[in-house]
Simulated assay, not measured.
Amino acid sequence: MGNISLGLNLEFARYENGSFDWAMDRAAEIGYRYVEPMVHWGRELLSEAGYFHSRSMLDDPLKLKHAAESRSLRISSISSHAPLAKPDIAVDYLKQAIRYAAECGSPMIMVDDGPVSGWTTEEENFTLMKYTLQEAVMVAEPRGIAIAIETHGPFTATPQGLDRLMKLVDSPVLTINLDTGNSYLSENDPHAWLDDIISNVTHLHAKDISVEDARRYRGKVRGMLGCACGEGVIDWERIIRTLTSADHDTVLSVECGSLDAATKSFHYLNDVVRRVSQQSPQPIS
């Protein structure tokens, strides 16, 4: 049965104008065991100045590894989103992200399927995504780094689209990051969807959507930062029960829009995991 660990996507720091180090400090103080940092190519002024949480892949990846270890944190994944259907952008970026992940101690990288060019057909986009994923897989496999496809873009907005994308390349390193909030906003039932794909889900974005935002944005957007887990539309007890039924471990990486929501989410999810464990004993980390 699968272990469940709680992690924090550092995206919460964006609306706090927080730096990478600030976000890492807050994650450790709250009690999270895992973090999901964001990386970028080249240099970015706001990050260098300490107003944004992303880290440049031009920096030594061992610095990121030390930043986590010095705070008794582990890295669940690095957020390295690149448009899969734009190989001129995505291929080299993802290859570097995979090599960076291998050195900084991350078991996987996070990617998604959008945006796409305005002039390509759906069939062309799938061909382009296959090319990108195949190139990335050839770098990921020998390093043992997973590539987690997030439910975030135009093709992963439905179970059928995600299934087709996952079948483009036959590789054990190609896995799924289900984003509960994004999948809900795309007018799916994330609970049933997780039930169907649990064998391939190696990472989960624990994102809740407030009732007000669900009413306003469902069917209109495919993604947004969430509210505190437990204050929205997601049934977390059902999600956690499904994760504990898996034959592999999973990190619940909270993705929300503020420090307050990150704190509330940790305490709420920790309580739910403990309650589910007591009802049906499972190892918790």
Rank of each mutant, 00 (worst) to 15 (best):
N17C: 03
Q282H: 14
R216L: 15
N270K: 09
Y131T: 04
I109A: 07
N182A: 00
E69H: 12
W193R: 00
I98V: 08
F12R: 02
L94E: 08
G144T: 04
E237I: 03
D271G: 10
G181F: 02
S54D: 10
R74K: 14
T120A: 09
F52E: 11
M24H: 06
L194Q: 02
S253Q: 01
R26I: 04
N188C: 07
I209N: 07
N17T: 04
R241E: 11
N17Y: 06
H152E: 05
Q160E: 13
I75D: 13
E135A: 12
V116P: 00
L128N: 06
G7N: 04
I75Q: 14
V173F: 11
S19F: 06
E11F: 14
D21C: 10
T244I: 14
S56D: 00
P159Q: 00
R238Y: 07
R215P: 09
N200S: 15
D59V: 11
E150D: 06
E69S: 13
D196S: 11
W22Q: 04
N3K: 10
D249F: 09
S277Y: 02
Y51A: 13
S79Y: 01
S199Q: 15
S72G: 14
E255F: 01
I197K: 00
D163G: 07
A49F: 10
G219H: 05
A49K: 08
L64F: 13
A23Y: 02
A146V: 10
R99C: 07
D113E: 06
L165Y: 00
F155C: 10
S186F: 06
G230R: 14
N3H: 03
D88N: 05
A67P: 12
V137D: 05
G161A: 08
I145C: 07
T242P: 11
M57Q: 12
L58W: 07
S258V: 05
G219K: 08
T202F: 03
Y268D: 03
E255D: 01
D92A: 09
P142I: 08
Y268S: 00
D179T: 00
R14S: 06
V35R: 01
R164V: 08
E29Y: 13
T132A: 01
A246I: 10
I4A: 09
V111C: 07
F20S: 05
S183H: 06
S171I: 15
A97H: 03
